[in-house]
């Protein structure tokens, strides 16, 4: 199989089909000693060949039971202008966005395989109603959900509704110093975010988590954020800085990058705001995997995940050893599940 991506990979030509069929039938027919059975046996072999070629497996057997994380980058838009991230620089136009029902359909197809669904962005709470709708559907399907937010758009009404679904909210926080806030976030809403964190702690309890980016710029701030979280009894995690178009610098944790930890991000099924499906938001770092695997508006998610190319990229990711393997989405087991 060629590793070079072909956009029409799944559309095999007639000659390829005939070659494949004859490649199965000719050796098989040579095995038949009782020649009077030649035609019925070739018919049976054709049935077998057709099943292996066209029968679509139930999703439960695709990747086992509850071994996958579905990650939805609901938008590239953001109300912050963080220097650590460049995603906000290229917001999507309305015409490129999929309908919520398309993602819900995808979630419903996959839920038996999922241990978690994660909503990220951009800033997901720009689409607060959609997030609540997905949260409700995830609860119905008994799939835990995480929303990763910058914390600035949180409202009491949202928190009350969100808490009913018993999902997790992760707020991004990189410094406790108001003087650095504008530099880090590009917006002046330190007081708003800090009061939202306190409100969220009160309403969500243990289901509020805080996450920081460990970079050269935040090396002195992360311990203070950790102390703040410890005092409030909030679980805190940090992950190394990655280049998503930002201008920060990594904290030179070379010992981390030399580690031979296997990349677990291959468990992920990622859907972009426009319906494109990838195995990992960062898999474009793998030269042969720069194109999406498919789009849920054009193909069924199961068909996309069943492609040989998906399998091949999954295999490549296992040993890709890129620095992004230290992101939280690479953690093999559910991260915050209570």
């Amino acid at each position: 199989m060629s590793l070079i991506y072909r956009r029409k990979f799944n559309q095999s030509s007639l000659s390829h089909l005939i070659n494949d069929y004859m490649g199965e039938m000719v050796p098989f027919s040579k095995r038949i000693e009782k020649k009077r059975f030649l035609i019925p046996l070739i018919f049976l072999k054709t049935i077998e060949w057709s099943i292996y070629r066209w029968y679509k497996s139930p999703v439960r057997r695709l990747y086992g039971v509850r071994r996958n994380e579905l990650i939805y980058m609901i938008t590239r838009r953001c109300n912050d202008r963080c220097s650590k991230c460049g995603i906000w620089k290229t917001p999507e136009p309305d015409s490129e966005r999929i309908n919520l029902k398309d993602f819900i359909k995808c979630l419903q197809s996959l839920h038996n395989n999922l241990y978690q669904v994660t909503i990220t962005g951009g800033e997901p709470l720009l689409f607060m109603e959609d997030v609540l709708h997905i949260a409700e559907e995830s609860r119905k399907l008994n799939v835990p959900m995480f929303v990763v937010t910058n914390g600035s758009l949180i409202t009491e009404d949202f928190l009350v509704k969100y808490s009913n679904f018993e999902h997790i909210l992760v707020v991004s926080l990189d410094t406790m110093e108001k003087s650095k806030w504008n530099e880090f976030r590009g917006r002046n809403h330190y007081d708003k975010v800090m009061s939202n964190i306190l409100l969220a702690r009160k309403i969500l309890g243990d289901r509020l988590k805080i996450q920081s980016v460990f970079a050269y710029e935040t090396r002195d701030d992360i311990p203070k954020v950790k102390t703040f979280c410890d005092e409030l009894g909030i679980q805190h995690t940090s992950q190394p800085y990655m280049d998503f178009g930002g201008v920060w610098h990594d904290a030179n944790v070379s010992s981390l990058l030399d580690n031979d930890m296997v990349c677990a991000a291959r468990k992920n099924i990622c859907v972009y705001y426009n319906g494109d499906v990838v195995k990992c938001f960062d898999h474009l770092r793998i030269p042969l995997a720069r194109e999406p695997l498919g789009n849920i508006l054009k193909e069924d998610i199961i068909s996309i995940l069943s492609k040989k190319r998906t399998t091949e990229i999954t295999r490549l990711m296992k040993n890709c050893n890129l620095p992004c393997k230290w992101l939280s989405c690479n953690i093999p087991e559910p991260q915050f599940l209570s």
């Binding site: 497996s57 057997r61 695709l62």
Partner: peptide
């Protein structure tokens, strides 16, 4: 054969060499 085919995706995921 449908049952055997159903397991093939799981197999391929773990063993691309089967391709």
């Amino acid at each position: 054969f449908m049952k055997y085919k159903s397991s093939s995706a799981t197999l391929y995921e773990g063993h691309t060499v089967l391709l």
